[in-house]
């Protein structure tokens, strides 16, 4: 039973780690500031959630799992706030969104 939980939590954490790497690749690959934000939110949501759920399975019903739940709530309530404030600051400062017509032109050439 505990071996099954171990394997399940390892799978969840590994998948979460893979999503973190995908998000980081996206932050590196995406053109323009706003599109990079979308990639970063993959790390904040799916990557972090899967890893924390895996750790919750590992810790069972202890005080540590309560703290992990608080950590999860912290990520879910505060990371959109931070993202929004960054996007809002960039918008007010006049950061121009990367236009899709550049992409349309380059993809129509292909």
């Amino acid at each position: 039973m505990s071996a099954a939980i171990d394997i399940l939590s390892m799978i969840l954490m590994s998948v979460g780690g893979v999503f973190c790497v995908i998000g980081a690749i996206g932050v590196l690959r995406m053109p323009g500031f706003y599109t990079r934000m979308h990639a970063a939110s993959v790390i904040d949501t799916l990557g972090a959630s899967l890893i924390i759920v895996g750790l919750l399975l590992q810790s069972g019903f202890t005080l540590a799992s309560g703290k992990l739940l608080i950590l999860w709530l912290l990520i879910f309530f505060c990371s959109p706030t931070a993202s929004h404030s960054l996007a809002n600051a960039a918008h007010r400062r006049g950061v121009i969104p990367w236009q899709s017509d550049q992409g349309a032109k380059s993809s129509s050439k292909n």
Partner: peptide, 22 residues
């Protein structure tokens, strides 16, 4: 831009938080 750096810093913070939790 400086916002790209701030965004990367924020994401690094999230990843470091997960690392500490693990």
């Amino acid at each position: 831009t400086v916002f790209d750096r701030a965004l990367a810093g924020n994401a690094i913070g999230t990843v470091a938080m997960l690392l500490l939790a693990i």
